[in-house]
């Protein structure tokens, strides 16, 4: 699975490409964590628009980042999930901890806004 990182102020936008399974999850975790550190970001947006497949490994990746970041006052948001991906994340109650947005801009705007208040 490939990833592209975009930085918008304190927010890291991680765009995922391809299939997110237990095999790919390790690298996604590592790359995301090291990008957060390298660029000194506080919040994280996972963009799932280009994800063609996801199993329960995605739950662990998202909740793992949520735990890490929320301990440091950061937040995680998700955008671009297919119906099946949303369904899987819902089973684990991910959306009670992490906000979902229809577009990447909405996610970024939300995180920016919350920062000001």
């Amino acid at each position: 699975m490939d990833m592209i990182f975009n930085i918008k102020e304190n927010i890291l936008v991680a765009e995922l490409f391809g299939e997110l399974d237990h095999h790919a999850a390790g690298k996604v975790r590592e790359d995301t964590d090291s990008a957060m550190e390298t660029y000194g970001c506080r919040d994280l947006v996972f963009d799932f628009t280009r994800v063609t497949f996801m199993d329960s490994s995605g739950i662990g990746v998202i909740l793992g980042r949520y735990r890490k970041l929320s301990a440091a006052g950061g937040r995680v948001a998700i955008t671009g999930c297919s119906l099946t991906v949303r369904n899987i994340l819902n089973m684990a109650g991910v959306f009670s901890l992490v906000d979902y947005f229809d577009t990447r801009d909405e996610a970024v705007n939300y995180l920016n806004r919350k920062e000001v208040s």
């Binding site: 975790r29 199993d55 329960s56 662990g60 909740l63 899987i88 089973m91």
Partner: peptide
């Protein structure tokens, strides 16, 4: 970081 959701899925 496993979620324990494999069987549920």
């Amino acid at each position: 970081e496993r979620s324990g959701m494999g069987f549920t899925v």
